[in-house]
Simulated assay, not measured.
Amino acid sequence: MNHLIQLRHTLHQFPETALEERQTAQRILEFFRPLAPDQTYQNLGGTGLAFLFKGKKPGKRLLFRCELDGLPIEDLNPSDHQSQIPGKGHLCGHDGHMTILCGLGEKLAQNRPESGEVVLLFQPAEETGDGAKAVLSDSRFEQIRPDFAFALHNLPGYPLHQVVMRKGTFAAGSTGMTITLTGRTSHSAHPEAGINPAEALAKLIQELPKLPQEANGFALLTLIHAELGSLAFGTSAGKGSLSMTLRAYDQQDLDELIEKVKTTAEAIATSEQLKVEFSFVEQFAVSVNDPSLYPEVEKAAKGLGLSLIEKSDPFRWSEDFGLFSQICPSFLFGLGAGENCPQLHEGTYDFPDEMIETGVGMFWSLIKNS
């Protein structure tokens, strides 16, 4: 594992954020060249990479996916592999996930599967929710469209190497949403001459957080930012905005919550004679695990002698692997990063190197058992 650990440390030192992962992709490409995959796809969905390994006989195509991007967060963990890029860090473990797929690539180069094909996908821009959509929209994706797709994510707070599983929803769907209200500026001495969105903004701040209570299942609306006019004391504001994150365990619940927000905002805007517009960013589909793949993942974990736990509720965070569950049977599982490991997206987080071998073992078992 030493060479893989060194690779992980190098990736950790030079993180790149969403859709800028060119240097990272180049490092991965150089690692795979001597492994001689049957097909290599570059610039997939932007900066993505995919490597196809053919089995000895025809059969199903399995896809294993990891993420290329780091975060725009300072790496605060002093180490010999601390990030060399100011303000950026691999603080979600994507450096470790990439290394696991590199280790899997080495195994495939030495031992092709008996049947079928294996695709190793290095996806860009997971953190913003743009990457999976870009990859799936790439015309070349049809050449590697899988019959089954798998991914893992490290999970701080769980015992090291423990496999965390769920049937159905594994992680919530979410979207960032901004409501923009436009009225008309006026002199602050004559506010009645303009249309100030302040009162409408105040009503939205009061009313919108109540909407998830009407959902059938889990739904959450978190206000994250509000803006009104500018710091010009002689001017009554003519524009305002309110941004929020919406989450749900069910895609229909998420879609319905979005519509309720729109309806509420439109009604308030109309009553205040304001123009209203909506915009969306960082849209993540619900990650749904196909129940038919549960026994396969369970068998892999037990075969490696790993502790296994079934989580009673889905995770509230989102993962854009959810889009893959809309095109084929898919399964996302967690791998414990240690009970005392700093949480994801914290400045002191660092992917535990011991997990690399476990991750490779899980994916290799899924290939052998397919």
Score class of each variant (00 low, 15 high):
K262H: 12
T47E: 13
S230R: 12
G116L: 06
F141E: 11
L52K: 14
A125G: 03
F333I: 09
P124N: 12
E282F: 00
H81R: 07
N154G: 04
T169D: 01
S174Q: 09
A226V: 11
G359Q: 11
L19T: 13
L19M: 15
I356M: 11
D75V: 02
Y294N: 02
R166F: 01
Q252N: 12
A226D: 07
A171R: 09
F284Q: 08
E298Q: 11
L121K: 14
Q13A: 14
G96Q: 06
L231N: 12
G96I: 09
H81S: 11
A267V: 13
C92E: 04
L293V: 04
T180K: 11
K275Y: 01
T263I: 08
I5M: 10
T222Q: 13
F280W: 12
S330H: 04
I73R: 00
A267Q: 15
Q39T: 13
M362W: 05
P314D: 03
A265W: 07
A134W: 06
G217L: 11
G338A: 03
I179A: 05
T169N: 09
L136S: 08
L35S: 05
K107S: 07
D290C: 01
V360W: 05
A248H: 05
L29A: 10
P295H: 04
E259G: 01
L68H: 07
I179L: 13
I85P: 02
G173D: 08
R33D: 09
E192P: 06
I268L: 09
F363P: 13
D138S: 09
T245M: 01
T40F: 01
E298S: 05
H9S: 09
A226Y: 05
A202W: 05
I85E: 06
P209N: 04
D38V: 06
E127Y: 06
W364E: 14
V135P: 08
N340L: 09
E142W: 00
D290G: 01
D313C: 01
D350H: 13
P113D: 05
Q26A: 15
L155V: 12
K275W: 00
S365A: 15
E354T: 11
G338T: 03
M165R: 10
F280V: 05
G322A: 02
A172Q: 03
G347A: 00
L242S: 02
H97L: 08
T175H: 02
D255Q: 15
L19H: 15
G334A: 03
A226K: 13
A25T: 11
F233V: 12
E272R: 08
V360K: 06
A151K: 01
R22F: 13
L120K: 02
